[in-house]
Design a protein around this nucleic acid. Structure first.
Lengths: 190, 190, 190, 190
DNA sequence: TATGAATGAGCCTTCATTCAT
DNA sequence: AATGAATGAAGGCTCATTCAT
């Protein structure tokens, strides 16, 4: 018998994101995805229970990828402004390179369907970050604020600006990027 | 007696928002909207070209409402931290009270359909703010940054946190709110 | 606005029976019915909730027609062999002329889907017959047997033979018909 | 060790009947049958050309089983009322014990797919019966009627009543059973 | 031989939109 | 202007069947 081709799942994921971001969530049909992924519509149902299941798993998958994006292997995560700058820039790079995934996550996070996905998959949760925030607060490097607040102050402006520049097809200069970082850092640092 | 025509458009808008936020964008069909608005599906087509046109006009309509939310009538818009605090809190109040509209706008802003809507309707444009930012920069009250950057640093964290708290059905305490404001202010102030 | 065309329902019923009897229950799809009835598939859903609902209502409709077939208007229903012969021949005529309906009813009656249709619609119930049977038993015209048994002895052979002759494309001669009637009558008469 | 091949066909037949009678003809898919029979869907196609072929062969198979049911080994088939009573009761027993098979046969006999199956497989053909009928007519034990008519008068009421009682989940008492037999016998006897 | 993977065709149903009053 | 009836196209999904091992 034919062996199951697990490589199909990434292909399906990739196709789904591509369709969602070009045609919108509305225009994203199973047949379009199948066509783009070069499989039969029926094949998708070998790997996923139904459309909702597929989207949910795609969401979780992409979420995990994003979670890893803040930190690179062997990265120094000492309690210092430099570390914060690194993760901030890593995140910037991730958004730039994966804007489709990123927009998908953001929109999907706000949709009613997401409500019953487990807590640990909500948009920004990341164990390494959490620990870094906690240690930095203890070391008086950053303000003693709730982690969610820290996260929002530090990353939300960046996220907003990248999306906007992508939408307008403009670019963020290195100079501006550093201005934004410094301002974000001012918001959370002590 | 026939109901007056112009009255129908708000009814349709209101119905659309209601359906979108209860059933999601997916579940929002013209007939559902018609039912909710108490008109015939065919009637909607007297006022709008098609569904896309209707959604687009709804978007613009809601956008304008939001644009006005930053400022209240007869409000003092002197160049001062207090003014910034007021518009920040006004915006907070608007999001809280109109979370459905707000989420609709945010999601829709990232959708491909909206891309060709004119600049003046993008999410954050607001003539009064623009002028306030410019005057504040000149007065050395805030950093000399691009207005978009100012806007993102000042409002994006707030927006993020309110959406998150709504999604998790938690609330933001007054204390936290002031912490967020102070941090956001640190980011942009000189 | 366009007025609802109730004449569409008979057309749909007729088409459904035709398809079922030519292509079998399996081959009976909503689109085929729509095509045959000269309406859009969507139109069927204006008159019926879904396929099951349509089939169920068709069943009940046809059942009622058949129930009326035993008796003709102004028919003499005195307690006599002649009356029994008349209803027996009426039923024969009905089956001959409506073999499709009849086969549909029989097959559907044996299907698991039918189980939850109300008792009064089961295959042979007919108030006029019931009363005739009771009076005839009291008058010692026929055997004192349960009405179901009377019904089966009197009609089941006829039904079987007509179906068989239709299937084999043969015909039942008048002579044979009277033989069958006399034999059926022997079974139930006293 | 591979299971022996011929063993698979009965397993498939058995599974098919089981599925048909629990889920209806509609719900009977090849994969369900395969699952129930503990084989792969593809395996069924080693033994049958396609679904229709399989159903047709199943029909013939079950038909033959039923044909044998009228007579038991070493049974006396003298020309007598007793013999008729025995085969009548054998048939009753068969229907009771194999109601699923029986209903399947009856419904399928009326289906368009079956029409071109050879004469010898139609519902009631049975060489032993045929000869019994012929001899009994010659001996003036029963009426000189066509064998099909004899068959219908003698068995159709029984069949009808058993199916009905099964559908209604009621039972036929021994007393009623004998009443039905006597009446059926009256219909055909001289 | 036997299998699980894979598929295109087709099913039921809904939707945005138009028709006819 | 306003409507409910009507519809073709498309959506999600399943199925009988074939493929490749």
């Amino acid at each position: 018998m034919r062996t199951k081709d697990e490589e199909k799942i990434p292909r399906i994921y990739h196709a789904a994101i591509k369709i969602i971001n070009s045609d919108g969530f509305e225009g994203c049909s199973m047949s379009k995805i199948a066509l783009e992924a070069n499989v039969s519509p029926a094949t998708i149902y070998l790997y996923f229970e139904n459309k909702e299941d597929m989207i949910k798993k795609l969401f979780i998958h992409v979420k995990e990828r994003m979670g890893h994006s803040y930190f690179k292997d062997n990265m120094d995560i000492s309690v210092s402004k430099g570390t914060f700058r690194s993760i901030w820039l890593n995140h910037y790079q991730y958004i730039m390179e994966n804007i489709d995934e990123y927009v998908f996550i953001e929109n999907f996070s706000n949709s009613p369907q997401i409500s019953h996905i487990e807590k640990q998959y909500t948009i920004d949760f990341c164990p390494v970050s959490e620990s870094l925030y906690d240690r930095s607060k203890k070391a008086k490097l950053i303000q003693n604020l709730d982690n969610d607040i820290i996260y929002s102050l530090f990353f939300a402006p960046l996220s907003y600006l990248v999306k906007k520049s992508k939408a307008n097809k403009t670019t963020v200069s290195t100079n501006e990027l550093m201005q934004i970082f410094e301002a974000s850092w001012r918001a959370i640092s002590l």
